[in-house]
Amino acid sequence: MSATPPSDERSLQVALPSSLDAYHGFIQSIMEHLEELGWSGSNLFAIQMALEESISNAIRHGNKEDPSKQVVIECELSSVRFWIRVCDEGAGFDPKKVPDCCDPDRLEIPGGRGLALMQAFMSRMEYNDRGNCLTMEKSLSAASSGCSCD
């Protein structure tokens, strides 16, 4: 984070329990912060999708809903930029090995669409080497990276 952040920038860090019914309040608070900062419409939808998919993945696939593990989230919000890092305590994974959900032969297989949605809706998305921390950013000055399925 910058030493002299813009006056409208807000930062927060939370540790959420690994329960699929325990994070929607957090997402709602982020959405309310962003609305106060002037975000709206399809941009808010995109960020809600990224939050929903990244946190649920961390709980379900990363921590495997183990109540002894947490999901740690760092977030920076401003009127022009959304930045988030979501880390779980799991073993990690290699996103390159996740099958392409958009392959015509795989369309009828449920699951595995969260990564494609996050990639499309965010300006930037990357995992750390271990694959247990996801960093994403959406900037209003940058266009979306577009559909990953083409």
């Binding site: 939808f45 959900c101 015509p104 494609a116 949605l117 809706f121 399925c149």
Partner: peptide, 16 residues
């Protein structure tokens, strides 16, 4: 809605 249609399009489910 346009936003949800985009979700279907991103994942190619508009073809399914």
């Amino acid at each position: 809605s346009p936003e949800i249609y985009q979700v279907f399009a991103i994942t190619n489910l508009d073809k399914l």
